[in-house]
Design a binder for these strands. Structure first.
Lengths: 338, 338
DNA sequence: TCATTGTTTGAAAACGATTACAATATATAT
DNA sequence: ATATATATTGTAATCGTTTTCAAACAATGA
């Protein structure tokens, strides 16, 4: 049925050890024999069996990408970056959606261990209670750090800085009453972005008004509701920094419904730069996360630790967030022109 | 290093055949011994080696999803549907992006063969020149049929019907001059949607005006340009059926820029129902493809043929497109109310 | 010609599981 | 107690590779 190395050996009249050597380009095979073997292999349609090879070599050239949900617009680009890098380096990738469920995450990690993947890149479902990560056998790098688990390398972006830049942009564009509408309070990235927000206000000597800081969920509806509450209570801000783009989109929707003129009287900035944000009909100003790069770098880092003989040290790679000015905030330079 | 079945056998004082039997719940092991073995295995932290198992069993419980580009908003839901179904059935999934490149597709198919995946679900990069699919060894099911390759089962949607429904909706909403702005002319799905468009016009005795049928690319810019040309040449339609949502979005953008009142004076319908379409700021009327279902069904079908002993026959599963009326077309029922 | 060296090759063990078959232990019937 | 059937266990082959070690061969120099 399946053509094996032995079949080739028989037909070529050599031992299968020689065939293996020839096929893998090992030295110590006469050029002549090698050519013969290669030809026979081709003629017979030989397909090496990676399973058998994996068994003896103890690696599979397979990696896994474990993320919450590929359907979330934040992840496809990461996945793409990861896959491009992996395929370039000769690795295949398992895609695993945890659906933000720690139990499913555990389960996946278990199967991945059984399937002997060489390494894993994981975006944890939650940032707490990830105790199952402690005694983990397989090299792993984290997207988003988990506070308290120091043993894994990670790729992160500087959320504090991102929050700072976002708020600074709003201030420089002349907005005065700037609200922060965030996601889950327990999420570290949310906390960090908020910290950046406060930092910027402080730097420009703007008092921090806690009534303008709202925690909700990383959902569009949450952004919508939060702004609505602010407006209904007569506490309408003239700009908001959304904890992520999805929230900002909800905010935008609400603002539009209330007839606020954007960006003239009301500015909105998000975070992530998901594909939606750049749609001509949306044009959301936001902080870009280098998503493709995150995926790519994560794989490259992972492969580097795989190749390293000794236990490599823990590395934290911090990527820079970048301001993308579009149409939901006043353009600073235009303002300066006046 | 790694705990094997032999280690367990030694510690439990039995042969490793018995261990294997106990671990796999095979009959013919005394309850007592079985419990002992299970306990020892647990205590030693045994992780079965799927590679070794795969070698003898000749299956890997691994599938692959080969698609053009996970970054394209059409695919994440398919991927999610596929993965959910697969994980429920005990399979893992390789994610492979061909980037619309037949060579890369070929290469992936080769590695997947070497890695001995049990089956593949493939959305071909192109619908022609896929000759490498002919002598393929591994069970495969196609997303989108390839004309002329009859040997594979496939999951499709009825594009002709989708095109028909879309156009019918436009007609019933009272639009008179309906253009079709399509994607790549060579793409079968495009041709089929166009056919549905013509069918609907015929049914309502509307003459087909070839100047209102435009072929371009499946890109937003293409939709934008195509409508612009129509407008510039004084041939402005009062509605357009876009070959897919991305095109329709480009059309929408152009229409908005030209101050056309949507949906009062100008109607737009797309195809696919990508996530963008339902954004509150967009609200594009469209034809929904059951993307999640497509992924799910594809996996289920694939697994069914894997489990079937005999060569199962070729199955074509045709899914139904569904009209999603949103805000870029007049609502039919409202019109009827008058 | 013979020892010495370097190249090619082959035999066999190993990777970690499953399973057919044989062997042993236990239970049942006479 | 003996023969027979049944339940439990062990031995060894197998899956398709890679690789160590030793054997065979060819080439070189004395």
């Amino acid at each position: 049925m399946q053509v094996t190395i032995k079949d080739i050996a028989k037909k070529a009249g050599v031992s299968y050890a020689t065939v293996s050597r020839a096929l893998n380009g090992r030295s110590g095979v006469k050029e002549e024999t090698k050519e013969l073997i290669l030809e026979v292999a081709k003629k017979m349609g030989y397909q090496p069996n990676a399973i058998a090879r994996g068994l003896v070599l103890k690696h599979t050239h397979t990696l896994a990408l474990v993320i919450p949900d590929i359907t979330n617009p934040f992840f496809p680009e990461i996945a793409r970056g990861a896959e491009d890098a992996a395929s370039l380096l000769g690795y295949s990738i398992f895609l695993c959606n945890t659906n933000w469920d720690t139990d499913k995450e555990k389960l996946y990690l278990k199967t991945l261990q059984e399937k002997r993947v060489d390494g894993i890149i994981l975006h944890p479902a939650h940032n707490d209670g990830e105790t199952h990560l402690y005694d983990f056998q397989i090299p792993m790098i984290l997207l988003n750090k988990i506070p308290g688990i120091a043993e894994y390398s990670s790729i992160e972006i500087d959320n504090v800085r991102g929050g700072f830049i976002a708020t600074k942009h709003l201030i420089e564009a002349g907005y005065k009453k700037i609200a922060f509408i965030g996601g889950t309070e327990s999420s570290p990235s949310n906390a960090e972005r908020k910290e950046g927000y406060k930092l910027a206000l402080k730097k420009y000597n703007i008092p921090i008004d806690e009534s303008l800081i709202i925690n909700g969920k990383f959902k569009s509806e949450s952004g919508y509701e939060s702004l609505k509450k602010l407006i209904d209570s007569g506490n309408t801000p003239d700009a908001v920094f959304g904890g992520n783009d999805v929230i900002a989109l909800g905010v935008l929707h609400c603002a539009q419904e209330h007839g606020l003129r954007i960006p003239e009287d009301f500015g909105i900035i998000g975070f992530d730069d998901i594909p939606y944000a750049s749609l001509p009909q949306i044009q959301l100003t936001t902080i870009e996360q280098p998503k493709y790069q995150m995926g790519k770098r994560a794989i490259e880092l992972l492969v580097r630790v795989l190749k390293a003989e000794e236990d490599s040290e823990v590395i934290r790679m911090i990527l820079e967030p970048k301001l993308k000015i579009r149409k939901t905030t006043r353009n600073v330079s235009r303002k300066l022109d006046k």
